[in-house]
C-alpha cells in the first residue's frame, strides 16, 4: 500500500479492486461497486467504486492525486476544479461513475515542479497564491477560462456577444467561482493576463 503522494500514482490493472474496498466488502451488506474506466492526465485508469464516491474523492483518495483540493465539498469554493474533456468542473459535485470514458486533467497533469505549465509558472511569478490550497483549482479554472473566451462562450458581464474581450472584468467574473481567502485575486488576474498575452 505504500505509495508516494509526490510520485505519479501506480497504474491499476483494469478491473482490479483497490485493497481497501475488497476487504471492506467482506461480511456486511456493502453498497454495490461499479466499474469505471477513465483517462486521467493521459493515462487510462480502471477503478471499482462505491457509486457515492465523487470524482474528487476518486482522484484524491483512490488515485492519490491530492492536488485537487476539497475546500467545501459543496461546489461553493472551486478548490476542486478539474478539466473534464477540456471543460472545467467542480469535481466534488459530480459522481465518479458518471465519468465513464471521460478524460480528466488535474493540476498534476498540467505540469510538474520541474516542468511547469505556463499558467503555473505565471502564478509563481506573480505570487498568485499564498497558502496554496485554492491554487490548483484557480489554475485549472484559469486555463479553462482562456479557452472559454477563445471559444466565444459568453459570461454575465459580456457586452458584445460577437467579440468577447479578454479584459479584467471578464476574467474576474469568470474566476469568481474560485474563492481565495488569502486573496491573491489581483495577482491571479495579472498571471492570467500575462499568459493570455503571451499566447495571443
Amino acid at each position: 500500500m505504500i505509495d508516494d503522494a509526490h510520485a505519479a500514482p501506480r497504474r491499476q490493472a483494469p478491473g482490479s479492486a483497490m485493497t481497501s474496498e475488497a476487504s471492506m466488502a467482506a461480511g456486511s451488506a456493502a453498497a454495490p461497486r461499479l466499474d469505471l474506466r477513465l483517462t486521467v492526465n493521459g493515462k487510462e485508469r480502471s477503478l471499482r467504486l462505491d457509486p457515492r464516491v465523487t470524482l474528487l474523492d476518486a482522484l484524491r483518495e483512490h488515485l492519490r492525486l491530492t492536488g485537487s483540493k476539497k475546500g467545501c465539498d459543496h461546489g461553493q469554493c472551486g478548490a476542486c476544479t478539474v478539466l473534464v474533456n477540456g471543460r472545467r468542473i467542480n469535481a466534488c459535485l459530480t459522481l465518479a461513475v458518471m465519468h465513464e470514458g471521460d478524460s480528466v486533467t488535474t493540476i498534476e497533469g498540467l505540469g510538474t515542479p520541474e516542468a511547469l505549465h505556463p499558467m503555473q509558472a505565471a502564478f509563481v511569478r506573480h505570487d498568485g497564491f499564498q497558502c496554496g490550497y485554492c491554487t490548483p483549482g484557480q489554475i485549472c479554472s484559469s486555463v479553462a477560462v482562456l479557452e472559454e473566451i477563445r471559444a466565444g462562450i459568453p459570461s454575465h458581464v459580456t457586452e458584445d456577444l460577437e467579440r468577447i474581450e479578454f479584459g479584467e472584468a471578464e476574467l474576474r467574473e469568470r474566476m469568481s467561482g474560485n474563492i481565495c481567502r488569502c486573496a491573491a485575486y489581483p495577482n491571479i488576474i495579472e498571471a492570467i493576463r500575462e499568459v493570455q498575452e503571451q499566447g495571443a
Binding site: A5, H6, L65, T66, G67, S68, K69, K70, T106, I107, E108, L110, G111, T112, P113, E114, L116, Q120, A121, F123, V124, F129, G132, Y133, T135, P136, I139
Partner: peptide
C-alpha cells in the same frame, strides 16, 4: 511555489 502550483505540496489529509 513550484510544489504548490503543481499540486505536490501535501496538506494534512
Amino acid at each position: 511555489g513550484p510544489l504548490k502550483v503543481s499540486g505536490r505540496a501535501p496538506y494534512a489529509y
